[in-house]
Design a protein around this nucleic acid. Sequence first.
RNA 1: GGGGAGAUACUCAAGCGGCCAACGAGGCUUGACUGUAAAUCAAGUGCGGAAUGCUUCGGAGGUUCGAAUCCUCCUCUCCCCA
Length: 394
Amino acid sequence: MDFEKELEIIRENTVDIISEEELLQKLKEAHSQKRELRVKYGADPSAPDIHLGHTVPLQKLRQLQELGHKVIFLIGDFTACIGDPSGVSKTRPPLTKEDVLKNAATYERQIFKILDKKKTELVLNSKWCEGMRLSDVVKLASHYTVARMLERDDFSMRFNKKEPISIHEFLYPLIQGYDSVILKADIEVGGTDQRFNFLLARELQRDFGQDPEVVILLPILEGTDGKQKMSKSLGNYIGIDETPLEIYGKLMSIPDKILHRYYNLLLGIPCPENSSPHEAKKRLAKEITSIYYGEEAGRKSEEEFHKIFVRKELPDKIPEVAIEKKEIWLVELLVEAKLASSRREARRLIVQGGVKLDNKVCTDPEAEIELRGGMILKVGKRRFAKIKLGGNNG
RNA sequence: GGGGAGAUACUCAAGCGGCCAACGAGGCUUGACUGUAAAUCAAGUGCGGAAUGCUUCGGAGGUUCGAAUCCUCCUCUCCCCA
């Protein structure tokens, strides 16, 4: 294998590699010693839904696996058990052991849609973190200074804005770095927001007498709002575990501006220049849906989407709702069908013209409805329910 | 340890005794329009079969005919000094 060529492949889509010389060196070394490089990737177990933003680094990992290297998929369960990691100032309820294990299983199911199971090792950092003594922690903390900690962007920003930073938050980058030491990572892959943490890991490894890991930084994908990074807490994410139609639909809803980003980062190809944004978006949505659910599902989702939103017809599957009464107040019906969370909201939807019964708009909030089995209730553009008379749901 | 500032709905942020279910912005929902769950524009955004109704402005008490607004204590945060 030509090392330059290997480097070329690894370089695709990256923002930065620290450093290419070191990487080249490692590739050569690994080859001559006939060993695989250990590629670390850290995941936060408190949000177990893998979304398209994660798939950018995951695809890079897959590539590295194809080049013969081994991925160490680290689940930061220890850090999550303590609570709030960096970022938002809200204290998140710490996860229990069971939550962590459940989330880890969820991860496992999802990541192997992309990664090669045979070349992946799943590890939890509680394994070595839990047994650390206070003296170990103090020693670890002595490797770094407050001033250097405050170099980190989000720390300095919060500090300047006079927002609280707890002492334990300073420990997270240290623990992350220590993970690299324990795992003897050769390479670490992550988004550009991890730059600081990764650099710290390199320093720690040096202090512990190891070769520092090579850092591969990848771009951060914007969410469906087209502005902020894709994340679960911002609600602008597309999970790879969501239904095909949902993935397809959410992709259709991204702003035109970021189409090229999605093409480059998710499909690895440039956005077609000569087709209309609509056509380009359709292709993007279909191809990405196909990656996770197969071509058949991609095609079906496209059809379904156009059926519902362009031709405004009914979807294939509509959830059934059993209603006891024969005659019912419309407001109550919406609440019963779980299409509105309160009667007040139901009333609002009706008045605003967002409620259709058998394709007829109902604007009278006082209306009493005589129910028939199979009636179709529609709220907004994409929430449907089919009425079933009497009995239990099912 | 001393002194000062602050905590308001999903988020940011006004209000500082009645006109406050609480300005405004973002988000979200709905509608119009559209190639789209895009952009733009408009409306809505605590609960209640609706009543001068009920529950809300960090928590607990108190003053008052009346409190998000005043007082006391508590919890948490930020700043300055040591």
